[in-house]
């Protein structure tokens, strides 16, 4: 089961992990992007049957994520082969991580795993030091969009300005 406390909350250090992101087994995880905000996007499954699905939307928004130097990582329990085909069909260039074996282990550690055996639809924004800055649990059938993510990234940028000042 998932963390009984539910989705990981702001202020907590993000559990470290790496997962396979390509068929050759390359491992990717948030610690590789310290110094930049990281957006972890847990989602139930590749191939959701709509045009404007969440992952396609985030790819379309890549120039905006770039403005914040934010790294987006998608995470589901799908295999790397499914991820690859899905990414090709939707033109997705950011990494899709395969939380496949042991199944859903990373999602569980973030409190984002469902009894149905999929990742929940959850967003977790990590600050430049790897602390959870914002998290959001959506209904599984509702695409949460990106407005909450960008608000969180704005807050991070503001906090850094205050500290520098």
């Amino acid at each position: 089961m998932s963390d009984p406390n539910g989705l990981i909350q702001p202020g907590r250090p993000a559990p470290g992990f790496t997962l396979a992101s390509t068929p050759d087994g390359r491992q990717t995880g948030p610690e590789q992007f310290r110094g930049r905000p990281v957006v972890l996007v847990f989602y139930p499954a590749d191939w959701s049957p709509v045009c404007g699905d969440q992952m396609s939307l985030y790819q379309a928004a890549a120039p905006v994520f770039d403005q914040y130097q934010a790294m987006v990582l998608g995470i589901s329990v799908d295999s790397i082969w499914s991820h690859r085909a899905f990414a090709e069909s939707r033109g997705i260039a950011f990494p899709l991580l395969s939380d496949f074996e042991p199944k859903g282990e990373v999602a569980r550690r973030y409190g984002a795993y469902t009894p149905q055996g999929e990742a929940a639809r959850a967003l977790v924004v990590l600050d430049q030091a790897g602390t959870v800055a914002w998290s959001y649990l959506s209904k599984p059938d509702v695409n949460p969009g990106a407005d909450g993510i960008f608000d969180a990234l704005d807050n991070l940028a503001r906090d850094r300005k205050v500290m520098a000042g």
């Binding site: 045009c51 404007g52 379309a60 928004a61 695409n143 990106a146 407005d147 960008f150």
Partner: peptide, 12 residues
């Protein structure tokens, strides 16, 4: 596009 994504546009 950017105004939309900031407003919560989540697909078309």
């Amino acid at each position: 596009f950017v105004g939309g994504i900031r407003s919560g546009v989540n697909g078309t």
